[in-house]
């Protein structure tokens, strides 16, 4: 069973307990306005071009079979629409200004790579986390990776948006103990606003969350707080109410906006909206409002 991933981040400390290795998988049903990992959205390989890094050496033009890299008047013009994603240019770029995102990998091979850091997991109470993108967008691959990890006794987390997947799947994953912990995104709690901010409805996401809770899954809510999008008291209150209602919620993480997605979106030839950072006082106030509604541990990460 093959899957498509973008990268493997080792020694990660913010994607579940202990020291972990996080796999970022490709493909996502959501199109969040602030997406932190835009290179994971599409379920296909993509070429990122970092213009500022390029030294205009021309190696890519020499290597490209389709002539999509053209150097005119000292400028590097990339004809993205003609690119066949062979990766020849990325292989020869001496400064990594070109990067092919999307590696096809066998589940077995991926797990072998994940086991490399087993000692870090064992010493720290860590494990592996499947993230993305949306890991449940490739359900069969995700299932095989998780099964293999569980067979090795490795703690597993699935970082999901809860969108584009059936209740049956999340229920089964939970019942069969494939995910020791769900990192479950709550991006917006108002139906209309959710659609506007992410492109998909909220109701099925909430239903999947409840399904996991009812199946005795363990949950950690992950709530990106984006200024002007969802930095509202009532959203915080709603998160608190949901956390109280759904069984199995162990903690709530408020995730601040960061701009790393902007650079990658630009390298993909896309435009992403920018947002300002939330002032500390505002962050404190929002967390305070959440904590009025629930005693479940919550913090900014």
């Amino acid at each position: 069973m093959k899957g498509l991933i973008t990268r493997i981040q080792r020694f990660s400390t913010t994607n579940g307990p202990g020291l972990r290795t996080t796999v970022f998988m490709k493909g996502c049903p959501l199109r969040c306005l602030w997406c932190h990992n835009p290179e994971t959205q599409k379920m296909k390989r993509e070429l990122l071009y970092y213009e500022e890094t390029c030294t205009r050496c021309g190696s890519c033009a020499e290597a490209c079979p389709k002539g999509v890299h053209i150097f005119q008047d000292g400028k590097h013009v990339f004809l993205r629409e003609n690119c066949v994603l062979c990766g020849a240019c990325a292989d020869v770029c001496p400064v990594r200004a070109l990067e092919l995102s999307g590696e096809e990998i066998e589940a077995e091979e991926l797990v072998t790579r994940l086991l490399r850091d087993r000692a870090f997991y064992e010493h720290s109470g860590g494990g592996i986390t499947l993230s993305g993108g949306e890991p449940l967008f490739q359900p069969a691959f995700t299932e095989e990776v998780l099964r293999r990890c569980k067979a090795e006794g490795i703690h597993t987390c699935v970082d999901t948006s809860g969108a584009g997947v059936s209740c049956d799947t999340v229920a089964r994953f939970t019942r069969e103990g494939l995910a020791d912990l769900w990192l479950y995104d709550l991006k917006e709690t108002d139906e209309e606003r959710h659609r506007a901010a992410t492109g998909v409805p909220f109701t099925p996401i909430l239903r999947n969350l409840e399904t996991i809770g009812e199946a005795h899954g363990k949950l950690r809510l992950r709530c990106p707080v984006i200024p002007g999008v969802n930095d509202r008291e009532e959203h915080m209150e709603k998160i608190g109410e949901i956390a109280e209602k759904v069984p199995g919620v162990l903690a709530i993480d408020l995730v601040p906006y960061h701009r790393l997605g902007l650079v990658k979106a630009e390298a993909l030839g896309e435009q992403q909206k920018t947002f300002e950072a939330l002032p500390e006082t505002r962050k404190k106030a929002l967390l305070g409002r959440l904590q009025e509604k629930t005693d479940i541990p919550s913090s900014w990460i």
Binding site: T13, L19, H123, S124
Partner: peptide, 17 residues
């Protein structure tokens, strides 16, 4: 910064290597 447990786990792992 890393949580103390994580840093300690890192050192333990490295020293085990």
């Amino acid at each position: 910064r890393l949580p103390e447990e994580m840093l300690s786990a890192m050192v333990d792992t490295y020293f085990e290597m």
